[in-house]
Design a protein around this nucleic acid. Structure first.
Lengths: 210, 210
DNA sequence: ATGTCAACCGCATAAATATGTTAAACCCAG
DNA sequence: CTGGGTTTAACATATTTATGCGGTTGACAT
């Protein structure tokens, strides 16, 4: 018997979900709520296996609720429910520890599958959500920005700058004169189109030069 | 009719997949190969809708094959097939632009669903894979290191430093005196245990304060 | 009421950085 | 062998940054 808790502000949908789940063998809705205002106490009291959590709710919304629950319980499975496959929310939810992310238009039969899947350690996702997740991932690693074609020596200097070295320390580290360090850095600034050390460092991080 | 190309070194499995797919309405296997040695030419010649790509193959393996195909065709759907839900490979594959990642133990019926799903823009994943993907994501964003408990104003100053502002510009932007900016920055340095602007910027990036 | 803390501001000085110009030595490709 | 890029280096100067000290105000908690 999978014990479910529901958070959903729309009364019709809340009732519909409750009936669907309660009417199916092996599932039981412990209770349902229209917001997350007391989510911590409720989860502690009911000890559910799976939580269905709407994203858009008045009061404490689903994303905040998710974080609150995760602070006190890292094992309960949490399925986020939403109408839109909105990039920002998806990212937020999965980095906060949601176990799955499904659209409300999911057919009832599928929903039960998803709950079961979540309960047994899976990560159910509507395929449009999964697509988003993959896109995020590949964009995170493919945007390696322009190639500023820094020379070897310049890359080395930039690396030391990023590590917090002063000109003097770089000169010492690289066995060259401080004026040479200046020369290199000026060249680096030209190539990166910046004009201060901290801008160069920031750019190095952003464009993953380091 | 969804046109499929198969790359799989095991002859039994290759034949099995071909028969399964060819024997189903709406699917057609254009051809199948035991490695990716000529993958570019083959994809260009057959113009498939979906490619089933095994990961472990002698010669050019599936991950390399994936990259090669993506260099010449960014629209064909590529489903990776594997025996293990190995973390490293999953990461590699999705950052190289795979559309889905499924285990070989997937039942035949499901496999056809997955192919259809991929063809229509979805991102089919076995649920164990999906779990991995979510885990990767949350681990990437939860390691935010210590909390340096910067005040609101200090965070704001740090943000502007990261954006490459000088003290003077920050003063202008925040409508405060430059000496106040100095005060804030000194406090920030204390809290972050650094003693230069660029170190602070680097730390801001590393610890995801920004 | 008293203490703490964030936020604000000023003055002074030393150190670091940014910018400019110039130039020798080297290697590589056309 | 000539032009281009890299690496090295020096000199000069203006600006920015780092650090020290000091201070007022207002909010908030004990």
């Amino acid at each position: 018997m999978i014990k479910v808790l529901i958070y959903e502000d729309n009364p019709q949908l809340r009732e519909g979900l409750t009936m669907l789940i309660n009417g199916s063998d092996g599932f039981e809705v412990l209770s349902s709520f229209k917001n997350c205002n007391n989510v911590v106490e409720e989860v502690e009291a009911f000890k559910p296996d799976v939580i269905l959590m709407d994203i858009d709710m008045p009061g404490v919304n689903g994303l905040e609720g998710l974080k609150l629950v995760r602070e006190i319980d890292t094992t309960v499975k949490i399925l986020m429910l939403t109408v839109f496959d909105d990039n920002k929310n998806v990212f937020q939810a999965i980095s906060s520890g949601a176990n799955g992310y499904i659209l409300k238009k999911t057919p009832p039969g599928k929903l039960l599958d998803y709950i079961t899947e979540a309960q047994s350690g899976g990560a159910p996702m509507t395929s449009s959500i999964a697509t988003q997740v993959l896109k995020m991932f590949s964009s995170m690693n493919n945007e390696k920005g322009e190639d500023y074609n820094l020379s070897d020596r310049e890359k080395q200097v930039l690396q030391l700058l990023v590590d917090g070295y002063s000109y003097k320390m770089i000169a010492g580290e690289m066995y060259i004169a401080i004026d040479t360090v200046r020369s290199h850095i000026k060249k680096i600034y030209e190539k990166l189109h910046v004009n201060s050390k901290s801008e160069a460092v920031a750019k190095a991080f952003k464009d993953r030069i380091v």
